[in-house]
C-alpha cells in the first residue's frame, strides 16, 4: 500500500513474457517492484548498493543489478527473472548447481545463475579463472565458490561436447 501523495508513474513492459501495464512508485527499485508488486521473489535484495549481485535480473537480454534500476525505467523493456528464464543455459545451470551442491542457503543462487548464463552465452568454454572473474560481482557467503565454479565448468564442458 502507498500513502496518497507518493509520486507514481505509468509503465508498460513485459515480465517473463507477460505484458504488464501498471503504476509504479517513482522511487521503487526494479527488484523491489518485481518482488513485492509483481510477486516474483526469485531475485533477492542483499545490499541495495550494487555490490552483492543477489538482485540480478535480465533487462532486454542483459544481466543488470535490479537494485540499481528504478521500476519506472523498465517502461518499454523486456524483463526476465530467474522464474521465467527458460533458456537452455539457465536450465542446465540450475541442474548443475543442484547436482554439485553449488548452493547452500540459496540466496545468491538466482543472481549467480543468471550471471553464469551470460558468461557461457558469450564464452562457452571458459577457464576456471574466467569463471571466477565473471562471477566476481556475485557474493556467496556459504559455498566458498568452488562448487559454483565446478557447476559452471560442467555446463561449459557439456556445451563444448555437443
Amino acid at each position: 500500500m502507498l500513502p496518497p501523495d507518493e509520486p507514481t508513474a505509468a509503465i508498460a513492459c513485459t515480465v517473463n513474457g507477460q505484458a504488464i501495464r501498471t503504476q509504479v512508485p517513482l522511487r521503487r527499485s526494479l527488484v523491489d517492484w518485481l518482488r513485492h508488486d509483481v510477486g516474483l521473489t526469485g531475485s533477492h535484495v542483499g545490499c541495495e548498493h550494487g555490490v552483492c549481485g543477489a538482485c540480478h535480473v535480465r533487462v532486454d537480454g542483459l544481466v543488470v543489478r535490479g537494485c540499481l534500476m528504478l521500476a519506472v525505467q523498465a517502461d518499454g523493456a523486456a524483463i526476465e527473472t530467474i522464474e521465467g528464464a527458460a533458456d537452455a543455459l539457465t536450465l542446465a545451470l540450475q541442474q548443475a548447481f543442484f547436482e554439485k551442491a553449488a548452493l547452500q542457503c540459496g540466496f545468491c543462487t538466482p543472481g549467480m545463475i543468471l550471471q553464469a548464463a551470460e558468461l557461457l552465452a558469450a564464452n562457452p568454454a571458459p577457464s576456471r579463472a574466467e569463471v571466477r572473474e565473471a562471477l566476481s560481482g556475485n557474493y556467496c557467503r556459504c559455498t566458498g565458490y568452488q562448487p559454483i565454479v565446478d557447476a559452471v565448468m560442467a555446463v561449459g564442458a557439456a556445451l563444448h561436447a555437443k
Binding site: 548498493h49 550494487g50 540499481l68 534500476m69 525505467q73
Partner: peptide
C-alpha cells in the same frame, strides 16, 4: 542526471544523494 545509475543509485539508496529531480537520459 540518471544515466547508468551504477553510482548514483547506490548513493540515493543510502540517502547520501537526494536530488529533487532525476533526469533519465537513457
Amino acid at each position: 542526471v540518471l544515466a547508468g545509475g551504477q553510482s548514483l543509485m547506490p548513493m540515493m539508496n543510502l540517502r547520501v544523494a537526494r536530488p529533487a529531480l532525476l533526469v533519465d537520459i537513457n
